[in-house]
């Protein structure tokens, strides 16, 4: 039995790894601009690895195309690379492992919990389908306005551009997301509103990497539901073993970490019967 207050790093290994990748990616972009490092140049909208391999946000390119731009080969190749990468891996890995807004909304979620807002105040909720409406609106407005519509107001862009090229008043976008998640809807931005999250939910629907669930080990303690920012994806928990199939799962691995029974694990979409090894020790 672990003593109280003894930090078990196994309980945070994915969380820490995610923070490391998120900060590392942003730092490499920052160094690309500030010190001329060539590992990663550009930002999360469009970039190059070692000044050769192009990478582009496929949703941004889609909007740009809808706006009537003839997309150059570099951006198109980059968008294809990124799209195939996330479509293959699946499950919104971008959202939980790369996107810097995830750190903001996680902080808001943590603060919300620390202040016990959901216990004392009436719970506000909106449908999680707002993000899909957001995709439709992004495309429609891109066509009508002739600009990439979501990129125009995206807090994601404001945050990474701010870190890499200087914030100015762009921190207001970040504050907006933080306050929205803290005071309005729980997991509001990433879990309900963000069209890019919606885009990757659709793109990663058939991807390989999944959280696997083993019903035989589960004691229905509901800790995974508590921690999960997209807990609608955990519908099979308590009823049947298998991979979490919803594309809305962000593959953050928090459920694995909080599970005391070792009933959840990173797995793949093909494994029908998840049998997880017993916890060592």
């Amino acid at each position: 039995m672990p003593r109280q207050g003894n930090l078990n790093m196994n309980k945070y290994k994915y969380l820490v790894s995610r923070r490391i990748t998120q900060i590392a990616v942003l730092s490499l972009f920052f160094a690309g601009n500030a010190f001329g490092w060539s590992i990663l140049r550009g930002n999360l909208s469009s970039a190059r690895i070692f000044d050769t391999v192009p990478l582009s946000d496929p949703f941004a390119v889609l909007q740009s195309f809808s706006a009537g731009a003839s997309i150059a080969v570099d951006a198109l190749t980059g968008a294809l690379i990124i799209f195939l990468f996330y479509a293959l891996i699946g499950g919104r890995v971008f959202c939980s492992w790369i996107c810097p807004v995830n750190m903001v909304t996680d902080l808001a979620g943590w603060t919300r919990k620390a202040l016990r807002l959901d216990l004392t105040l009436k719970y506000w909720d909106i449908t999680r389908d707002v993000r899909y409406w957001g995709i439709a609106l992004s495309i429609a407005l891109s066509v009508m306005m002739g600009v990439a519509a979501f990129e125009w107001i995206s807090p994601i862009g404001a945050l990474h551009r701010g870190v890499i090229y200087g914030f100015g008043f762009a921190w207001m976008f970040v504050l907006f997301v933080f306050l929205f998640d803290l005071l309005a809807v729980r997991n509001g931005f990433c879990g309900h509103v963000c069209p890019l999250g919606g885009f990757y939910s659709l793109a990663g629907r058939f991807g390989i990497l999944r959280i696997g669930y083993d019903k035989n080990k589960c004691t229905s303690c509901m800790k995974c539901f508590e921690i999960c920012p997209e807990n609608q994806v955990l519908a099979i928990v308590g009823s049947k073993s298998g991979p979490i199939r919803s594309g809305e799962c962000i593959n953050c691995g928090r459920c694995i970490e909080v599970c005391d029974e070792n009933a959840l694990k990173f797995s793949n979409i093909y494994s029908q019967n998840i049998i997880l090894p017993n916890k060592e020790g």
Binding site: R41, G42, A47, A69, G146, V147, G157, A158, R161, F169
Partner: peptide, 29 residues
């Protein structure tokens, strides 16, 4: 108009400029 449709705001032109003449527009600009 065509520029606004095509630009993805990646800032690679800003990085490339040896004189730091280019900037990406912040909200207050």
């Amino acid at each position: 108009r065509q520029f606004l449709a095509a630009c993805l705001k990646c800032g690679m032109c800003v990085e490339a400029c040896p004189y730091n003449a280019l900037e990406l527009a912040r909200p207050e600009d």
